[in-house]
């Protein structure tokens, strides 16, 4: 099973669901299929961990990365780089927008409504079953509604990014997958893909999973892991 994304992909979800990690890895996966790819950090909510951490490896792959101006990188101010509108007007094969968390994070999408009009948009809701407030269907639906209201845009697909970071096992991936399947059954929205690190992916029984699996390399590592030990 392969993923086929074109034009605009918006990655949204509740706070801390792993939107940035998903967006960054999705960008890399799309680029590997030979498509031109751009990724923009629209996360105006959390300046601590964001796409900038992954800038260098992404640019090395030939992916266009749009971040807030350097002088504002460490500001907790709602600044949207003018370059975001530019990449939407002059699109790559795939343009990935990494939205901020919760309903607040997607309000910026409403301000881009004019440029997004008449475009083919996939709006993904990223769900990590092990995060507060999205451990059950009701919680996921509540977030979905908030996102749609604030972003003035409908969610078109679901992504399971089930993980407990280094403590993740195959059982967690299945549990997260089962949850998004239930959300899918309630909403009629497709499960676009699930995520797993290469180590976990090798342990998965693929007969149990009826959607593509996006390989995740975790870029958002804490400073004590930069040296590769714990």
């Amino acid at each position: 099973m392969t993923m086929d994304f074109t034009d605009i992909v918006i990655v949204a979800g509740n706070y801390g669901s792993g939107k940035t990690e998903t967006a960054v890895n999705l960008a890399a996966a799309c680029r590997k299929t030979g498509k031109s790819v751009a990724i923009a950090d629209l996360d105006l909510v959390n300046p601590y961990f964001r796409t900038r951490e992954a800038r260098i490896p992404l640019e090395a792959m030939g992916i266009q990365v749009v971040l807030p101006d350097r002088q504002y990188l460490h500001a907790d101010l709602p600044i949207l780089a003018p370059a975001v509108a530019d990449i939407l007007r002059n699109p790559s094969d795939v343009t990935i927008l990494d939205a901020g968390g919760d309903d607040v994070g997607v309000t910026v999408l409403a301000s881009l409504a004019a440029v997004l009009k008449d475009r083919k948009i996939r709006m993904l809701q990223v769900i990590n079953a092990f995060r507060p407030f999205t451990g059950d269907v009701a919680g996921c639906l509540k977030i979905q509604k908030q996102i749609e209201t604030s972003g003035k845009i409908k969610v078109t697909g679901l992504v399971s990014n089930a993980n407990l970071m280094d403590d993740t096992s195959a059982a967690h991936i299945y549990q997260g997958y089962d949850l998004v399947k239930q959300v899918s059954a309630h909403t009629g929205l497709p499960v676009e893909f699930i995520t797993a690190t290469p180590q976990i992916q090798s342990q998965l029984d693929m007969n149990r999973i009826a959607c593509p699996v996006l390989t995740i390399d975790r870029h958002m590592t804490p400073p004590w892991k930069h040296a590769g030990t714990t």
């Binding site: 801390g16 990590n128 092990f130 995060r131 507060p132 451990g135 993980n163 407990l164 970071m165 403590d167």
Partner: peptide, 13 residues
């Protein structure tokens, strides 16, 4: 069971 939390959220909980 374990949950994945931000320090700030975990302090609240």
């Amino acid at each position: 069971a374990k949950v994945l939390m931000k320090g700030n959220e975990a302090i609240g909980e």
